[in-house]
Amino acid sequence: MGMDINTGALRKNAFRVTKRRGITASRVRIPGGRMDAKLLGEIQKIAELYGDGTVHITSRQGFEILGIPFENIDKVNEALQPLIDELDINQEKRNKGYSAAGTRNITACIGNTVCPYACYNTTEFAKKIEKEIFPHNLHFKVALTGCPNDCAKVRMHDFGIQGMTMPQLDKSRCVSCGACERVCRKRSVKAITMVNNKPEHNLEKCIGCGLCVVNCPMRAWTRSEKKYYKLVIMGRTGKKNPRLGEDFLKWADEENIIKIIKNTYAYVTEYIAKDAPGGKEHIGYIVDRTGMEEFKKWAMKDVHLDSETIEYDSIYWKGPKY
């Protein structure tokens, strides 16, 4: 009997149409890239019972369970339920697997629960965004990284979030050791100069990496109470014009970033190319077409930026154009 499979529905359900006829693969999303190790057992079970016993660690911090015959799809969806429950993934119908695949898994670097440089809990923020935007069929890529090192390569995403801290200086605790000036000059952006043997901080230059704080032996430099983020937008990989995301907001806050990402769904729904292959178009191409001002009109709806947030007005993206 010939197989009659709706590939569109299959893909929406986070399964893949592979090279081999009748064989699919299931993508498990892990927002923020961190999970309880016991869930590995669930993945193993699915791979061994319904697939070919192998998994691929995806480039978006998920697992792809390989070699699944189409007839096992329903069983795989049922077996995915503990993973979906445990990772608290929004779902339309229980035991039916993932409700969409367009909005990709939200990736994150290891974050501040482990890394000395990270400025916030990346997984927690990733999960918060996931709850707000998934499931959705639109092709959105969001990534979070703890600091401007950008280990998570967030500049290659539609929305990239980098952690920042606004360094606070108590000069009475400074011993003129020069560690902050040296590390900022050698590893960051030269935002510190020594004046009368004590550091002077250039907030305009500062990228909020927090190296001055990490390297201060005296707690003369400390982190701001508030957590800040840089939002970089419209980066992408791909064929026509791959490019790095550019700075849109500096010293931004969590709530407004979530709002901006959510607002962009309406903008894309309105302006996505009606003939976009597979209903999929990187948001940056849409912004190229409508202009930044139109994008902002939609994205900034109900967004009230904090007074310290800097918004960049004119953004020019680069990257090779083929």
């Binding site: 501040n112 990270a118 916030y120 809990n121 801290t165 990490v214 707690r219 957590k227």
Partner: peptide, 15 residues
């Protein structure tokens, strides 16, 4: 305990 004033994010400084 100085909340959040440790050298790493979300750590305290005791001084």
């Amino acid at each position: 305990r100085y909340k959040g004033q440790g050298e790493f994010s979300d750590t305290d400084s005791i001084r």
